[in-house]
Each structure stands twice: as structure tokens, then as C-alpha cells.
């Protein structure tokens, strides 16, 4: 499924669903998230996933794990608001 305007909300929801599934101490990278989103019918480029993660972070639905040593390594987790969003949308 292409990540264009009619599908973008579905892609955001897929990202949040994968992030919600991860109940480990670690965050997920854009690359890993993109791979998991294949199950939802998406095959995003890493850049597309990153753009949407930044958008979701801006909406406080996802959060970037603080960069510790390697500043280029970026990982993400869901926020309480993200869970609330999934809950509100019965996802």
C-alpha cells in the first residue's frame, strides 16, 4: 500500500499498533518498525517511517528514546497518549 494521503492515517495507526505491541524496555528503530508494518500492508522507506514517527512524536503519540552514545541511533516508543489514541479508535 503506498503511503500517500488516503493511507497515511492507516500507516500512522500501524506504527502505533507495532509500538504498542513492544512492551520491552527497548525502543524500536524506524527500520524495524518499517519491517513490522509489512504485516499491515505497508512497505515504507526508512525516511517515510521517520517522517511519520516525527509527526507522531509532535502529536505526543510516540516518543523518541533518548540518544545515549550514538547520536545517529534513533529508537521509538509509544506514549500514554498513543495508547489512548488506539483505545479511542478501538485498535
Amino acid at each position: 500500500m503506498p503511503i500517500n494521503s488516503p493511507n497515511i492515517e492507516l500507516f500512522d495507526q500501524a506504527l502505533l499498533q507495532v509500538l504498542e505491541t513492544n512492551n520491552t524496555r527497548f525502543g524500536l528503530t524506524a527500520q524495524a518498525l518499517g519491517t513490522f508494518c509489512r504485516a499491515y500492508g505497508f512497505q515504507p522507506e526508512e525516511k517515510e517511517t521517520l517522517d511519520r514517527l516525527e509527526y507522531l512524536a509532535g502529536k505526543n503519540l510516540a516518543a523518541e528514546v533518548p540518544k545515549i552514545i550514538d547520536k545517529t541511533f534513533r529508537a521509538w516508543k509509544i506514549t500514554a497518549a498513543g495508547r489512548q489514541y488506539l483505545d479511542d479508535h478501538n485498535l
Binding site: F26, L28, T29, Q31, A32, T35, V65, I69, D70, F73
Partner: peptide, 12 residues
């Protein structure tokens, strides 16, 4: 940092 990297490599 290593945990994050190992975890994501493993999932991939």
C-alpha cells in the same frame, strides 16, 4: 546503547 542495538538487530 548496546541493548538497544542488539534488540533491534534481533527483531530485524
Amino acid at each position: 546503547a548496546a541493548g538497544q542495538i542488539f534488540f533491534n538487530r534481533q527483531t530485524q
